[in-house]
Design a protein around this nucleic acid. Structure first.
Lengths: 358, 358
DNA sequence: CTGAAAGCGCTAACAG
DNA sequence: CTGTTAGCGCTTTCAG
């Protein structure tokens, strides 16, 4: 008894033509109700498995739902309900670092009952600063139950919803945070160079306004201090985390009267630029110059020669952030609000003992 | 006459305590209006830059908006408006392939005026098939203006909204599609092996139900046919795109009385498994065995030795999909509804001339 | 130039 | 067991 009503004007029914083609043919609960000959709220009850529906009605409505391919609109439901069971990951752009974090987050989300959606600010640098606040406002509390901010530039978000920051770019934030140990990592990288016998170690620094960059430079200095090697300030050149500017910095360093025998770059992109400049200048790596990067992005394994670098556990960052966020949403108290993960040294082919033309 | 009914129990109203603290303190348009002493619709006009607001009111409301940090809710706006200026990318999971596609999409979205959001089905394999339809229904027409489906298993989506599929897993779909040329790529990979002098070339095949796998096997056969080399059917082993099963297949192949001198794997993951098995068995690569993969996922550059493979332009897939979708949304007619991108051979260290113990 | 009112699609009381 | 009703936050006619 699907639809043999007699004298109604219900000319178009069944599958096809009732849906308009303009908007995109979304089937609404309204239409299901009409088609099934029940009220809209009954359909709602069926969709949500609420009690108070006769099994006969239930079956019938279910059949119509399936036939029409109806799904509740995420938007409408979100607007009505407090909870959405969706967690948002907000990134400035989909680039190597953030996508790695995303993979870790996807991993961690499994089995939690949450769904993951990722928003990209689209790399629009004009409105770069503040995107996190704007996006947060737009989705929190309606579309998502909580959010992970990846490399936010603003951390004083006075937002009281569940939010976790991954590798925030400025200062120790008031937000729960998970980041890699930039200081220890940088020390490790420079220690490695030092242990290889290098004494004139240059550094291509990162963007001065970002803590991660500051920490890496500090690690460079501390490693020197611990080894009793004085730092020659002229050996620090600003790379600003920008490939082009890093190239410039490398050129400066390698063009010195007494050039460094090793260079520590604030990130892999800068290290890769350094490698390029060395090649242009005919400086052999690692024979005449050792290079160490930071991050271990996938690309760094593909360079010539493959880059020795300090790896930060990008996926783990995402994983832990989700774990913290889920706990936060559940109303739990976090043991640690600022998690710091260890970095490791990945030895590839850009470093060699001083004077050893490997 | 806002609410001055006399003897009602309307005790709580106004600014503060009416908002629950649980949800997260979202500022609503309502609150802005109250604070600014104007109507809610005036705030709306200001937010959207509509005409019909005195510059004085405009400035005042703007000030309040900024002070309160108000942003319109994406959800509420979506519900009301037909357009959202958001494009959705739907992926089964965030894994190497899909994130590469995502990067390409992010690249292409710039300057289009659209924002990108990525949904992950969360890799829940129990409800794997059909996730694309479900998600599509849930977000299309409300949250997003169009969608890109990455590796959907269902392509007969009878959806009439703007949707583009990337590397669909089954059949030539009715949807506009962009995919790599699996046939040509496989031929190229096997041709390479053939040109190196190999005549007994094994293949670790992919999941038989996916077109990409079928095409790759067909390429293997066509390359043989073109070279006049007969295919020994016992040299094909099922790897099912699964690392473990691929390992099994490789074991079978390499354990034969007369083992192949080269193996073409249906994807990089399978090739990597093959490499592992070869190492376990003491078979030298490329000295005793040449291996070619398919995909060129980042991991393949890190294997020992680095894998020679057929690369498909993953980012380009995402890029082109977005371009097509944007055109579609704009109501344009697509010149080509099924775009096929070329693959390229990436020569690394797992192949060598037959008999050449390089 | 401004505000009141009607909904977008859905859920959750509350009546029948 | 079923339907009516009142909004979630917002945009948009349409009156004042």
């Amino acid at each position: 008894m699907t639809g043999d009503v007699e004298e109604n004007t219900v000319t178009q029914q069944g599958t096809g033509p009732s849906a308009p083609l303009g908007g995109g043919g979304r089937v609404t609960m309204q239409q299901v109700a009409l088609e099934a000959g029940v009220s809209i709220s009954t359909v709602s009850k069926v969709m949500n498995g609420r009690y108070g529906v006769s099994s006969q009605t239930f079956d019938h409505v279910t059949e119509v739902i399936n036939r029409l391919g109806y799904e509740t609109s995420l938007v409408a439901r979100s607007l009505r309900n407090a909870r959405t069971n969706v967690i948002g990951v907000l990134v400035a752009d989909f680039e190597p670092f953030s996508t790695e974090v995303l993979k870790g987050a996807a991993d961690a989300i499994r089995g939690t009952g949450y769904e993951l959606v990722a928003y990209s600010a689209g790399g629009r640098f004009d409105e770069h600063v503040g995107w996190e606040r704007r996006y947060l406002s737009r989705v929190m509390g309606t579309l998502v139950d909580g959010a992970v901010l990846v490399t936010p530039t603003v951390t004083d978000v006075q937002y009281d919803g569940p939010v976790v920051a991954v590798d925030p770019h400025t200062g120790r934030s008031s937000l729960p945070t998970v980041a890699a140990d930039n200081l220890q990592g940088a020390r490790m990288g420079v220690d490695h160079l030092l242990s290889l016998g290098h004494r004139r170690i240059g550094m291509v620094t990162g963007r001065a306004d970002l803590v991660s960059a500051q920490l890496r430079e500090r690690g460079y200095r501390e490693a020197h201090a611990a080894a009793g090697v004085p730092v020659d300030e002229s050996l620090l050149a600003d790379g600003a985390f920008d490939p082009e500017q890093a190239r410039e910095a490398a050129r400066t360093l390698l063009g010195m009267a007494e050039p460094p025998t090793a260079i520590f770059a604030a990130n892999d992109l800068s290290a890769l630029s350094t490698l390029e400049v060395a090649a242009e200048l005919g400086v052999e790596v690692p024979g005449q110059l050792s290079v160490v990067g930071f991050d271990n992005i996938p690309e760094s394994a593909l360079s010539h020669p493959p880059l020795t670098t300090v790896q930060q556990p990008m996926r783990q960052l995402g994983h832990d952030a989700i774990a913290m966020l889920v706990a936060l949403i559940a109303g739990e108290q976090l043991d640690e609000t600022h998690v710091t993960l260890d970095t490791t040294l990945v030895l590839r082919r850009t470093t060699a003992t001083l004077g050893d033309a490997s």
